[in-house]
Design a protein around this nucleic acid. Structure first.
Length: 264
DNA sequence: TTCCATGTTCCGCA
DNA sequence: TTGCGGAACATGGA
């Protein structure tokens, strides 16, 4: 489930496994995922170098080449994943891109539903600009005043606001529901009609939820029981009041919320 | 078998 | 003209 916390966990995984080693080969297994870059160009540009740094903006993971001239950008769609392994038995299925290091290990990017994207960009700023991404949901530049200003300019629903990557980057269907559940705000609420108190609660819960999810490796099974994510499947009961969650189509996605705890 | 799904992008409408 | 909502996209799993 690659939203901000999942991608941040993958970024740290890449930092711990894939940096500072000579790259021997790069193989593109599914060129349909390449955006504005050819297989030949990737195969020419990346081998015989090392990766030296990673960065994340929203749901994008960017990996710098040692010369800092090129950044490999990975987007994980709905089902993308990374796996660092040595023996073929541990190779995932549906590998779209595989890097082989001189130490005999491989880094596989897999994407079963093929909605991910692979790009090569000159800088993170260029990628952010190309995709018209707003500030990362956890960036320090997005302070409360800035967040409130964004809310004030927006009609539609608060859930749609949170999921719009050009407004702020990183939240998708699951974590927008989670933040609104923790902040006790109805997903259909109008962003510009929120009280200052409500806006502060959403801003605060956005940080708390995302940071806690990252601390728990974005693994649903390990999250605290008060998370909506733990009850989305299964009992579908509100951890606070015990009532059944409601389901509605909001912003083109399935929203889950507590009709009693979450007020417009 | 049919429907639904965490992603983005594109199109139509107000 | 702009912003918002819904459909389309590809594929696997319930």
């Amino acid at each position: 489930m690659p939203e901000l916390p999942d991608v941040e966990v993958m970024r740290r995984y890449f930092d711990a496994t894939g940096l500072h080693q000579q790259i021997e080969t790069l193989d593109v297994h599914d060129k349909a995922l390449l955006k504005d870059v050819s297989t030949q160009h990737l195969e020419k540009t990346i081998p015989q170098h090392t990766f030296c740094e990673t960065r994340r903006h929203g749901k994008y993971l960017m990996i710098a080449m040692d010369n800092h001239q090129n950044w490999l950008s990975l987007h994980f769609g709905m089902t993308g994943d990374l796996q660092y392994f040595k023996h073929a038995a541990r190779q995932p299925t549906h590998v779209s891109l595989q890097i082989t290091y001189e130490n005999g290990y491989h880094m596989a990017y897999s994407c079963p539903r093929r909605l991910g994207r692979i790009e090569l960009v000159p800088s993170p700023d260029k990628l952010i600009h190309q995709h018209e991404l707003g500030p990362d949901a956890l960036s320090e530049s997005l302070d409360l005043a800035h967040f409130q200003k964004l809310l004030g300019h927006r009609s539609g629903t608060i859930k749609g606001f949170l999921m719009d990557q050009s407004t702020l980057a990183g939240l998708g269907n699951l974590y927008s529901d989670e933040i609104l559940y923790q902040a006790r705000i109805h997903p259909r609420s109008s962003p510009r009609s929120l009280t200052t108190r409500q806006a502060k609660r959403i801003y605060h819960m956005m940080h708390k939820v995302l940071n806690q999810a990252i601390d728990h490796k974005a693994d649903v099974d390990n999250l605290p029981n008060r998370f909506l994510l733990k009850h989305r499947q299964g009992d579908r009961l509100c951890w606070r009041c015990g009532s059944s969650f409601e389901q509605a189509r909001i912003g083109g996605r399935t929203a889950i919320f507590c009709p009693l705890c979450q007020k417009p």
